[in-house]
Amino acid sequence: MQNLLFAVEPNALETLLIDAQTPKDVCRDPQIRDQLDLQNSGAAMHELLTAQPVGAVYPPLHHAITAEYSFPHVRSAHGPVCYNSAVVVADIHAALQQISTEQFRQRYHAHAESLGNSVPESGRSGSQSEAEIEQLSIMFLRLKAFYGHAHEHNSAVISMILTDFRG
């Protein structure tokens, strides 16, 4: 499965909300400005972004991977096709900027410890764990850049999960 994010101008989003009937209609829209394929890391990224120390609140990050509002006429077999307005994108961008790569890595290790493992999934060796955190850290940097670019251009963001994406 692939978690996909698309940046689009607010006016183009309005048109898609009215006209799109399938996820492919959204993916193939010529007004898509930018795209990020989180590959299979979407669920792990969501867990790490929304796991917070006691007292910390980062509500916008709950919608960084799976956007807040559903498209009324479009559904993927694996979940809704959703969007974040440009205002929500600005909030997500600001929240992501508060997290350094080192803090993200610390979240990974804290999450693993909370599960009672030295690594997030039992049975993984140390080198597999390091490879996973490295991949997730790279994806985190891409996510920050994607939301930074979307915010810079006052874009909305569309999210969806697909099994077979050929954009």
Rank of each mutant, 00 (worst) to 15 (best):
V54A: 15
L17Q: 11
H73D: 08
L141C: 11
I138Y: 12
A67M: 04
F71I: 05
K24W: 06
V87T: 13
E102V: 13
I65D: 00
Q31T: 12
N84W: 00
Q52V: 13
Q135L: 12
G126Q: 13
D29L: 01
L96R: 00
E68A: 12
C27F: 13
I65L: 04
H111D: 05
L136I: 05
L48S: 05
H62E: 12
Q21H: 09
A94D: 14
H62D: 07
N84T: 05
V74F: 02
Q21G: 07
T22E: 13
K144L: 05
L16R: 02
V88M: 15
Y58T: 15
L61N: 04
H93L: 01
H78Q: 10
M45E: 03
R142Y: 09
E134M: 13
P53Q: 15
I133P: 01
V81Q: 01
T50D: 01
V74K: 03
F140M: 10
V54C: 03
S118D: 07
D25P: 04
L115W: 03
R75G: 01
S76I: 02
Q97K: 15
V119D: 00
L17E: 06
A94E: 12
C27H: 02
E68G: 00
C27A: 13
A131C: 05
F140P: 02
A86C: 09
N40S: 10
V26C: 06
I138A: 07
V89H: 01
I32D: 02
Q106W: 07
T22C: 05
E121K: 11
D29F: 09
S127D: 12
A112Q: 03
D37R: 00
Q128V: 09
V89S: 03
D37C: 09
F104R: 02
Q39Y: 10
H63L: 08
T50G: 00
P120A: 06
L61D: 04
I32W: 04
A67E: 03
Q128M: 08
L115R: 14
M45D: 04
L17R: 14
E68Q: 14
Q39L: 11
Q31K: 09
A95R: 03
D34M: 06
A95S: 15
D91C: 07
V81M: 01
T22W: 06
T101F: 01
Q39M: 10
Q39N: 08
Q35I: 12
G126V: 07
A145E: 13
Q35T: 11
T22D: 06
S118R: 15
R142W: 06
D91R: 14
I92A: 03
P60S: 06
A44P: 02
R33A: 13
Q35V: 12
D29S: 11
L48P: 05
A64I: 05
D37P: 00
S76N: 05
I99V: 15
P80H: 11
